[in-house]
Design a protein around this nucleic acid. Structure first.
Lengths: 193, 193
DNA sequence: CCTCCTGCGTAGCACTCGCTACATAGCATG
DNA sequence: CATGCTATGTAGCGAGTGCTACGCAGGAGG
């Protein structure tokens, strides 16, 4: 009965592996089918569309990432801004998590242009990251938690982007300039123009 | 004699326009040729390769960006970290400069995977950004100029990435959390201040 | 006048893309 | 046994990809 669902499930796992290694460039039907040990014909039998297929596969990857992140800084409890940031950066530079970061950047680039499904998925990922970051962050006033987590997220992403273009040296410099603790946010100055 | 070079030059300009609008996805020969008012055949006559063509076009785009940035914060002299960051972010969100940011992210994503020519070009762009940022930054100790500029660059990129995935709200939150002035960098062991 | 190089158009190759039409083998149910 | 559904293979379409082969016009040099 669920012969079909079982096979679909198996294909999903293998395709997630494949996407993580090959990136969105390897996301055409025939290579994906080869990686899943089936044919493009069958993929479109399991999924109605390439879009549906891709969304499902990216969703699977998100689940994996969430599970992996659960193990990070788990015992340590909440950490202050800079310490948490450096830890996250270190984690995402490890071979196990690097593919996720690369895929995330690819997804962001593609989200900046087309509409579905990348934009939606990418947005969800950002939200997930933010929530996860906020939950690990040690903060003085609770009101500043989300903004501070957002800043942390942005900074991590920026560092990853510099890594991606082969300028880890710049990223390291940037990490060295991190404030030991982020000034309390208060209100922001108006910009000149 | 320069008939060829003139035409090549003209094609370069038109292709730069095209790339900025369409992104790397529009970077195949026939669309580029159409944008340049010629044929793919001719593009490969002007340039030996698609790689050479792309590198040249991206180079042209970099020159344009550099010229555009010269006009930014020109009269204002050096600015402190947060003010400069907010100004740069505002500038890159303007319609005129947004395409550059999007292309930059696309370039970074592609650089994270393939080798030439994107990786090389993307690296140069990062270096250029860093130098430009450093030149506008007002710092307390000269030694901290490069690291602080690097941090600013990373943060701007991170904010842009969040914008790209349609999470400008998160980016705005992050901007609100920026320290009014960045703690002096020093070394990182204990907590000063 | 004849030849040769420059500039360029036409056609095409061999490939990949997402997707579909068609056929079929096996099994379940009437 | 007949019917019909499930699962899957084969083949192909129409569009796009980078790139090349070939040939033709026209002007420059002999």
């Amino acid at each position: 009965m669920n012969v079909r669902d079982d096979r679909r499930e198996a294909a999903l796992e293998r395709m997630a592996d494949h996407l993580l290694v090959q990136g969105l460039a390897g996301a055409s039907l025939r290579p994906l089918a080869a990686a899943a040990g089936t044919s493009d014909r069958m993929l479109l039998y399991y999924f109605k569309d390439k879009d549906e297929l891709l969304t499902a596969t990216l969703g699977r990857i998100m689940e994996r990432l969430a599970r992996l992140l659960d193990g990070v800084g788990g015992g340590a409890g909440p950490m202050p801004f800079t310490a948490l940031l450096l830890e996250i950066r270190a984690v995402f530079r490890s071979p196990a998590l690097q593919p996720y970061m690369r895929l995330w950047i690819e997804l962001a680039a593609s989200a900046a242009r087309d509409e579905a499904p990348h934009r939606a998925v990418a947005g969800q990922i950002a939200d997930g990251f933010l929530a996860w970051t906020a939950s690990r962050l040690q903060v003085e006033q609770e009101a500043g938690r989300i903004p501070l987590a957002a800043l942390l997220l942005a900074t991590v992403d920026g560092l990853a982007l510099l890594d991606a273009v082969g300028r880890s040296a710049i990223a390291d410099d940037a990490a060295a300039a991190l404030p030991l603790r982020p000034a309390s946010t208060a209100r922001r100055p108006k910009r000149p123009r």
